[in-house]
Design a binder for these strands. Structure first.
Lengths: 256, 256
DNA sequence: AAGTGGTCTAGACCACTCT
DNA sequence: GAGTGGTCTAGACCACTTG
């Protein structure tokens, strides 16, 4: 299809209004273009994208320039390179790393294959804080999923808020039927791929309901992890509040 | 000084024992070499390292190969590039980003210029858990620093463990005298640069002592953040246990 | 104007996977 | 052997900083 980048900015081009020129190198324009195609679903999760050689021809640039664009996308985990095989669209459904976003680890022993227990999935009007976080109109329809993650004893109580219009038809039945991580279901069934997330972490005391669900004494200190997940265009698509029992687990983080 | 990489591995070289060949590209060998020089203190924090052009000549490789090595070191925050000026050894003492490793943020308002109050700094034999974390012999001499960080009210109670042999002469007086982040002092006065850290986070209830220090009710849920910091060769050089009051602050994290 | 990092090219060759 | 990503080169030119 021999596409030419129609909007290439000549290196020295000034802005219309004379403000910061915002020089954007070629490889970034190509990167943006690739992101747009990913966003548009041109290549589905786990599929291979065209080879660097072919992309270079399409975009009429050298392979090195394509390479640099793909390098950045791989660093951001939007793409995965596999030498000798190709470059693939990243996916949460992959068996290798389950729960890429869950940073909970047992204090002793190996990392956890946790079981899930679905509590409920209902449709609601968004509370104001949820609407704000998800950039929805006040009172917009949302789905609220509640569930427990457990090893032998319950460890995590999750409350998940999703914009209803993006997840039409999601219900308790389909949730219960699906094996594997939730984010795998989201990308396979609804074409919503989680790309990035921000978490806010606090310590709270367990209220009566939470204590019952997690089978522990009221007032037990819990980790409260509020996660806002984003898809391609930095648009928020999931708000999740998790309460973690950290008596035998901890949240692990790496600082660079 | 026209150094040649004496230990260059020819691309196809097999291991002596025939095990995994562990092919290491040129740019990684150069990267390792640069790390060694950083570790050895050839270039001090905030100093410029030689230009890419010069490094390329020294190592007898092309500039692009040096570039790739430096790229990775910049991504790991060991070096900082500044276009038109040069490449510099990263430092914690820089005014721009105070507290690079502190992820605590106020729930509302801008990020925090926090005051410090030193509680004490004493020399002890390492408790077994501390010795283990810092890879010291049981009972080795360590320094324990305790302090409080506060905005208006106290927010963080830190307990910091350091191997005494690396921080000879550190005492309450010098700690009190130093302005700026602790890690700045460590690199300026003791040549110990924190490069990377791992944190384990839990929720705990405030004990009586902690409650007194942080001026809150006993049993208040607190974030317990245990940080192990590493210097260049992945050797642990600081263990820090922080108790965070998260009633008006939160620990923020980004997942990619 | 000189020096630095940043981009881009064209081409060679290597390492890995699959057929 | 063919196709893919990965490394390396030599050189040109651009963007930014400083004298």
């Amino acid at each position: 299809m021999a596409v030419v980048l129609s909007s290439i900015q000549p290196p020295g081009a000034a802005d219309a209004d004379g403000s910061a020129p915002a020089f954007s190198p070629l490889y970034r324009q190509i990167k943006a273009r690739l992101v747009r195609e990913l966003q548009g679903g041109v290549w589905k999760p786990a599929e291979a994208i065209p080879s660097e050689h072919e992309l270079a021809q399409r975009f009429k640039v050298s392979q090195g320039t394509v390479r640099k664009a793909v390098d950045e996308l791989a660093a951001e985990h939007l793409l995965v390179r596999r030498q000798g095989k190709g470059t693939f669209v990243a996916t949460h459904a992959e068996q290798t790393v389950q729960y890429r976003f869950l940073r909970l680890t047992p204090d002793a022993g190996d990392s956890l294959p946790m079981d899930r227990r679905l509590l409920d999935c209902i449709r609601l009007r968004a509370p104001s804080d949820v609407a704000r976080a998800l950039a929805l109109k006040a009172g917009a329809a949302v789905l609220r999923v509640r569930r427990v993650l457990l090893t032998q004893r319950p460890v995590v109580f999750d409350e998940i808020w999703l914009p209803a219009h993006l997840f039409k038809g999601l219900n308790a039945e389909r949730l219960a039927a699906y094996e594997g991580p939730l984010y795998g279901l989201f990308e396979a069934e609804f074409g919503v791929r989680m790309v990035r997330a921000e978490e806010k972490i606090r310590a709270v005391a367990a209220d009566a309901d939470t204590a019952a669900v997690l089978a522990l004494a009221p007032q037990t200190p819990l980790l409260c992890v509020e996660r806002l997940s984003f898809t391609y265009a930095d648009s928020p698509v999931e708000l999740r509040r998790g309460l973690y029992d950290t008596r035998h687990h901890h949240y692990r983080n790496v600082l660079n």
